[in-house]
Design a binder for these strands. Sequence first.
DNA 1: TGTAAGTGGAGCACTCTGCTCCGCTTATAA
DNA 2: TTATAAGCGGAGCAGAGTGCTCCACTTACA
Lengths: 195, 195
Amino acid sequence: MRADARANRDEIVEAALELFQEQADFNVSFRTIASRAGVGVATLHRHFPDRAALITEVIDHLDRGVTAIIEDHLSRWDEDPQRAWSGSIHRLVDLGIAPLASGGSEFAVTEGKVDGFLQYMRQKDMRPMERLLGKGVQHGFAPSDLDPYRFAAGIVLLSRPLPYLTAQILPDQREWLVDVYIDGLRARARDTSSG
Amino acid sequence: MRADARANRDEIVEAALELFQEQADFNVSFRTIASRAGVGVATLHRHFPDRAALITEVIDHLDRGVTAIIEDHLSRWDEDPQRAWSGSIHRLVDLGIAPLASGGSEFAVTEGKVDGFLQYMRQKDMRPMERLLGKGVQHGFAPSDLDPYRFAAGIVLLSRPLPYLTAQILPDQREWLVDVYIDGLRARARDTSSG
DNA sequence: TGTAAGTGGAGCACTCTGCTCCGCTTATAA
DNA sequence: TTATAAGCGGAGCAGAGTGCTCCACTTACA
């Protein structure tokens, strides 16, 4: 693969991720994605023959991001557990993982490939997240009934875009809300361990 | 207005609300809305000449729902403050207010009526919510830096649909997450008052 | 029971979509 | 430097989906 082709491919994946996040929807037109990537439609189609191929690539990209964030914070856990724990949650929310999870059904319906997509999601490696949660429970940051899916659901909801509210009426309250979530988890951890 | 016309109008508003919530988007085709309401497209257009008219009606409908829930729980506050507080939050989330807030920008952009829509949102009566928060702060359920917009942002995020996750992989975790949010608010209330 | 009010769906004009084709440009190895 | 294969962009096509209107039909109700 020629170097310029590789660069274009990367541009496309990044543009697609941005747009999927902004619109919280996988159904962004190829024209729009190509234009954001600064590339012709033909180039987009050459690299990704259909929408499923593009989405798969974007999800893999995000997934690698999730794993990297978790590994990074786990490696600095002993330094300052509290900081590693809450830092990892903030950074996972910042990743903007929402469309990965909640755009899934639209994708599946649109493409008529429910089973394929589901299997794809299910095969994702949950071990890094399980390790993070294990550490969190152990240090009293998270309740013991917090499984990876509950945790993921929280991240997904918190990472949802609020374009109208944030842009027009109130400044971005996301960090504040994430801190409330973190405090809530710790409060429940105390309740479960003492009660 | 004839009785059957009135009934159709109500069906339409309800159908539109459902679809806006399910798709977290105001751009649902008139055909789809009409069909869900069990009504012809012409009937839909007769009652609501354009999309803005329909959205306005749906938002008013939701807004009345918000006020009703708050009034209801405030009136039963003294009976059991804790129950009234957390009950009101759960019920506000159940309302599914998300598209009202975060679909706003799409609507504004699509219709090219940003200012009109913004003014419309700003003129909404925030007093019921302010009274609820006042009581919450007073009883130590909410931190004093919780203003109505932060509170609303939390409700909006929690009420976001998670169609893919909930339908296919994990059972609905929303109640659990709402409880974490409530616990987080109380934990912060303690911190602010003592520190 | 007369009639004004209300109805639904076919159909029009239009926009936007995915996708291909092909003449042009450019990276790269010799 | 140059030959050439690899890669490129955008015009354009066929089709799907849209908002909206028209009008022959039905129905609530004075």
